[in-house]
Every structure is written in C-alpha cells, then in structure tokens.
Simulated assay, not measured.
Amino acid sequence: MVKPTRVTNSLRAVREAQQLTQADVARRVGVTRQTLIAIEQGKYSPTLELAFQLARVFGATLDELFHYPED
C-alpha cells in the first residue's frame, strides 16, 4: 500500500524572519489571507505559478520554501 505524501513548507518561518505579515504576502501574490494561512498550515498546496510567486516575494528558491518527503 502506498502512503500518501504531503508537501510541507517553510513559508511561516521565512515570512516571520523577513518580518512580513500574512496580509502583506497575500496582497503581493494576489490571494486572500485565508488562502495563505491554509498554505502555511499545509492544508492547501499552491499551484506551481503561486509557488513561484511566493518564492519571488521571499527571494528564495522553491526548494527553500517547499519540501517533498523522500522515500
């Protein structure tokens, strides 16, 4: 049986390190604050386009923000 994998992220830690609010980031990428909260909590995975937009806001790579578990 295959275990479902879950993408995790470092968005909250990176956002807080850069002293940005959820509202600031959400506004910059064009989503609601509630959407950003869901992404930070791992309840929602962003589209690839949104993931790139988030990476650009933080000056980070996708690998620095999003983590896919290894087998």
Rank of each mutant, 00 (worst) to 15 (best):
L11V: 10
S10R: 10
V57P: 00
Y44G: 08
E40H: 09
T61H: 09
Q41V: 05
R28G: 01
L11N: 07
A23D: 04
Q19H: 12
T5V: 10
K43Y: 05
A26W: 10
N9W: 00
K3A: 10
D71R: 15
G59S: 07
R56V: 11
D63G: 15
R28D: 00
G30C: 05
N9V: 03
A13Q: 08
A55I: 10
Q34W: 08
E70T: 15
S10V: 00
Q18N: 12
L62A: 14
M1P: 09
E64P: 00
N9G: 01
L54C: 11
A55M: 05
Y44D: 15
D63N: 11
V29H: 06
E16D: 05
N9E: 02
R6K: 12
S10W: 05
G42Q: 10
V29R: 00
T8Q: 02
I39K: 02
V14H: 06
T32L: 14
Q53N: 09
Y44C: 04
Y68N: 08
E64Q: 14
R6S: 04
T5D: 08
T8K: 08
L48T: 12
V31R: 01
Q18C: 07
F52V: 15
L54E: 06
Q18Y: 01
V31S: 12
K3I: 13
L11D: 00
E40P: 07
K3T: 13
R6Y: 03
R27I: 00
Q22D: 01
I39S: 03
A17N: 08
A51Y: 07
A55Y: 06
V2H: 14
I37F: 07
T5I: 09
S45R: 05
P4A: 12
L20N: 13
G59R: 02
V31G: 03
V29Y: 13
F58E: 02
T21D: 03
A26I: 11
R28I: 05
L50F: 04
P69M: 01
Q41P: 02
Q22S: 00
E49T: 08
R12P: 03
L62M: 14
D24G: 07
D24Q: 11
H67N: 15
A23T: 15
A13I: 06
T21E: 04
A51G: 11
G42V: 07
L62P: 15
H67M: 12
P69I: 00
T35C: 11
T32Y: 13
R33M: 13
F58T: 08
G30R: 00
L36A: 06
L50K: 14
N9Y: 02
A17S: 05
V57F: 01
Q22Y: 06
V25N: 01
L20D: 08
A26Q: 06
Q19M: 07
R27Q: 08
A55F: 06
A60R: 15
G42N: 06
L54Q: 03
T8D: 03
D71A: 10
P69T: 13
G30H: 10
S45M: 10
E16H: 03
V14Q: 04
A17H: 12
I37L: 04
D24S: 11
Q19G: 05
I37T: 05
V57W: 02
T21F: 00
V57T: 11
V57H: 00
R15A: 01
L62H: 13
I37C: 10
Q34H: 12
P4S: 13
L65W: 04
F66R: 01
